[in-house]
Design a protein around this nucleic acid. Structure first.
Lengths: 230, 230
DNA sequence: TATTTTGTGTGTAATTCTTACGCAATATAT
DNA sequence: ATATATTGCGTAAGAATTACACACAAAATA
């Protein structure tokens, strides 16, 4: 019989962190999923995640998972909900502190992890292991609400980007359509965009201006108690 | 030596739910605090909370805590953040799933709990036990953001209320001042208020009209995918 | 009793924001 | 050459926000 090393007077649930990793390819919003190599749900796709260590915060745990999968160590990452349904893991009681991360696809190298990993666009997500479908859907809703208060979109875009890409991103996150000209007007009006001198040809028809996010201006406004209200 | 009944191969943190219980007296936003009867932090004020049972969700656990303190079993309650700093409880590693609850002060009876409980207005909150100051501050921020997407204010008001009380509530939550006439215009324009025939005298000067929240209309609009945008 | 003070209800003008488009320039495809 | 797709710039109408003015009722005060 196996010796259990850690004992308590009262039962304790196991605690994991899971991470919904969002990326953007210029047109579509994508999510990184892992194919499970072990039971339960072996062969099914799932969110990256793992057990919380006793000396790390949930934030640190989620960052660790993210680095294992993407090689990134400086991404935007936010906790959004803790899932606690008693039956959500068939093995034992496991509660998971769910996060979403926003990463720049161009900066993602393959992760250390041997596990099978793949980016899925939001409309091709397969059925997921555990309650990960629900976690993913809630992550999308929380990101959608967040973008009204924080310019989180820029975390998904490269250093420079076109207005078209920025609009595609907002449309993908909010699931709406904007008039091209009104969108640009509103974005410039926020005062958080810097126009560069450079042009780029993304479509074959015509070249367009490259933009940059004005982080200094944003930090300055935030200090003054500014509300985004996109 | 004590026998520990629950053993695991890996260490598990203890899991609690804490609850920031908001109330509104017609003028000020208030929070219910408990004076701790035991160490650690004996004699200090703290948020109501307790250990999560193995067969209940965090939501059920928070509802249970709320009922113990207020006698209410149908309040609006939302999880908003899980606090995981390894040193936040001096006894052992404890992570807490924090919630805020919105209750109608008139409906609150004293709780079953023998513990000393008191309502504090937001500007008279004493230093709290553990990291509860931080939890309370974050609850306030989360409530403030929530009110832009959901008409949560009505959870804090009695069945009928005056426009003045509604404005006081919004001003207390958002920490801003509105012009009386513009506020009423905006509120009526949302279409979620029903004017009753009844008048009430809250101040000695003049009686004012009683209003009612139009929940049916709100549920109908929400189904159609409506955004509040207060 | 007459006057002042305070809280409520209604209205309005100026300004800003949003929304729905038009049009020209540029380069590709046919 | 001509049609077509993409980008940048602009404008007019309508909606929403903001800053007030004024009237009325009742309590407080002179």
């Amino acid at each position: 019989m196996e010796t259990k090393k850690y004992s308590y007077d009262y039962p304790h649930p196991a605690v994991t962190t899971d991470c919904v990793i969002f990326g953007f390819d210029g047109s579509d919003l994508k999510v990184l999923l892992i194919e499970r190599g072990i039971e339960p749900f072996k062969g099914k796709w799932a969110l990256p995640g793992g057990f919380l260590k006793m000396d790390e915060t949930a934030h640190e745990g989620a960052l660790r998972e993210l680095e294992e999968e993407t090689g990134m160590n400086n991404a935007y990452i936010r906790q959004f909900h803790t899932f606690t349904e008693p039956g959500r893991d068939p093995r034992e009681r496991v509660i998971t502190i769910a996060h979403y991360a926003l990463v720049r696809l161009q900066e993602v190298k393959g992760g250390d992890d041997a596990a099978q990993a793949r980016w899925f666009t939001m409309d091709e997500i397969p059925p997921l292991a555990f309650d990960h479908d629900r976690i993913l859907r809630m992550a999308q809703i929380m990101l959608r609400e967040r973008i009204h208060f924080e310019p989180v979109g820029f975390e998904l875009l490269p250093e420079t980007f076109t207005m078209k890409q920025l609009q595609n991103l907002y449309e993908a996150i909010l699931d709406v359509h904007f008039d091209r000209r009104n969108f640009a007007k509103k974005m410039f009006h926020l005062g958080l965009l810097i126009q560069t001198e450079d042009m780029v040809r993304t479509s074959p028809k015509r070249e367009s201006q490259l933009l940059r996010f004005n982080k200094e201006k944003y930090d300055e406004l935030k200090q003054k108690g500014f509300r985004l209200e996109f």
